[in-house]
Design a protein around this nucleic acid. Structure first.
Lengths: 196, 196, 196, 196
DNA sequence: CTCTAAGCGAGACGGTACGTCCGGTCTTCTA
DNA sequence: TAGAAGACCGGACGTACCGTCTCGCTTAGAG
């Protein structure tokens, strides 16, 4: 054991103010027009206080989005015995969540932050995608143990299809394009893996 | 009568130099560190010459990516009569295309350009996603006419699952995360829509 | 003959605005609290426009002071035949000039700019001191030709004493210290070089 | 009774380290690029320890220069009975002192510190100029009492000429300009005040 | 021999300014 | 006209210091 913490400790009030300001601005002006200077101003914080913590705008945004989202627990689908209905219900719930402009603005921001950065991309997929993957997998595993799924069903591929479609929906939410339908997708997927 | 274009016509050599430089830089430094000034310098062109053609960096990038990709015709899956095999084959081919670092860098750039911009998002989805949608739909329609698909199968949802998974694969290509498997996905989807 | 000037030429309206703003601020807030940013703001000019022309705050200030002073011709002392009276008159006139708070603020600023910089120091001594040296020397030379000065009189030393005392007076103008008396000095100097 | 200082007393080792670091840095990087943070780092001292003692960089520099110079006693010119020779000798000695790059760097620093500050200007003139003034005046007074000077000679003006010339020499030491000659000056001044 | 009041190195804090980069726009000259 | 060149205003970048403010830790005199 070596040197105790020396000097004034970092203020976690500043942490909160920064992440909050970043999330607010991301929602209101979008990723491109978001600036570290703007975050500092809104948070009532010096720029250096931001740069002491994160190396770039992308990193701040990534953390801000994950922090904002960390309150939302990703619940696994219920288990009523009816896989199709359970997934439909789950899709409905998270489809509404994704449709919230604030949520989709934040996720689009996170994607922008991840597009150029290995580190942020990893954070994104570890912290946002993995909980969803785990949640759905737990429900599918229950089903598999009852023997109601095909033996060789590729559950990872199934989950990726769900995640990919959700991502696609969020990214295309700026366009007039018809939004991918999570309900219809679930129907196909369930039929595709159900034991015959 | 003087309605014909007067003065020096635009140089399409300049066009090509600009789009080529943009594509090169996008691949080599990524979207964030790409600048209009950098494109102009590499293309040996004045900034004004770029701004005469496109309103923003995002628009240049979008056009550059689409131009680079326009050589690649999105062929519909072959029709051997075996839908599963045909989609597997198609997935294999485009899976390899997406795995090319240059292609994925460009698509990630386009996503970055689209994240904040309704216009670029629309361009992206019209020019990249729609041809794929059309290609797959044409094969599925053939199949449907033979009556080998369920009556109520939601073909749009199926295609969105494919597009979403492809997008997810590209965006996660920076991470060490296991890549979504297009082959396994196709299996599930075919089973999910095939008439029983 | 090679390439004519290409591109948009520098705006000499900007030049004037910058130098004017610098002179104003130097007078009103002093050298230490003068900032390039402040000059830019007051001149209605972008910072880059200043940095295109001068490498540092010290260089801008040096140029501004010299420009402001360039209107003031340093006249040689009159030649009435009475060297003592002529130098007294000259000292009175320039003593009043130095006593002007604006003038002394500018000269103090120039000294501050010159203290660390060989380049600015040289500018200062070439453009401010040399004209004074030349002016006085021309009067002394007339006198020497009449044979009214000692043969071996060190006229350079005499002039340096005048310049040094003027400088000392300006730099000590912030203090309550009694101001060096140019009139008394002239008396001594004239007596010190007059043929006996 | 509780008027004695309580708590840990100030460390005069810190004092010495600070003033030494300031003097070193002033010599090596000049006044402009000198920073309190740099002094603290070089002295191995916390910034607060500096600010507890002095209110500003200029004040530290002023004290550092005066401390460094305090070892050098300003001796009055010797009295051999020959005023001219005595002043020449004195000028020679202090001319060499001023020619030392370390000394002139420090004095230039002090001038920079004094340019904007009434307080530091006063310190400068009280602590550097006054001892010189006193030293020379004492010699001149001896001479005056012997009746070898003119009755109405303005001794203050004479001394200001010496101080001004010395200052001018230091400030112009960065340039290639010929240095004012203290020896020649002394000749003129002596001739200018000597009883005829 | 504890209590309390400094002082100390360390380092974070809100700020201001730095010098640079780039975004779009605007001349100027040349083709 | 278009195009290369490059200056213009503006805004943000990431860094350096400013002077202040905790931290935990001495180091003293007072009780």
């Amino acid at each position: 054991m070596t040197d105790a913490r020396r000097g004034r400790p970092r203020s976690d009030q500043a942490d909160r103010a920064i992440l909050g300001a970043a999330a607010d601005l991301l929602t209101s002006v979008g990723y491109e027009r978001l600036s570290v200077e703007g975050i500092a101003a809104r948070a009532g914080v010096a720029k250096q206080t931001i740069y002491r913590r994160w190396p770039s705008k992308a990193a701040v945004v990534a953390e801000a989005v994950l922090a904002a989202q960390s309150g939302v627990a990703i619940a696994p689908p219920a288990d009523t015995g009816d896989l199709r209905a359970d997934l439909q219900e789950w899709a409905l719930q998270y489809g509404l969540w994704l449709a919230d402009p604030v949520v989709s603005a934040m996720i689009r921001g996170l994607v922008a932050a991840a597009v150029d950065s290995q580190t942020n991309a990893t954070r994104l997929y570890d912290h946002l995608a993995d909980p969803i993957r785990t949640a759905i997998l737990s429900r599918l595993t229950q089903e598999a143990e009852r023997g109601t799924l095909r033996k060789n069903a590729d559950l990872d591929a199934l989950i990726d299809a769900i995640l990919g479609t959700m991502l696609y929906r969020v990214l295309s939410s700026l366009t007039d394009a018809p939004k991918p339908d999570l309900g219809g997708l679930m129907n196909i997927l369930v039929d595709g893996v159900r034991a015959q």
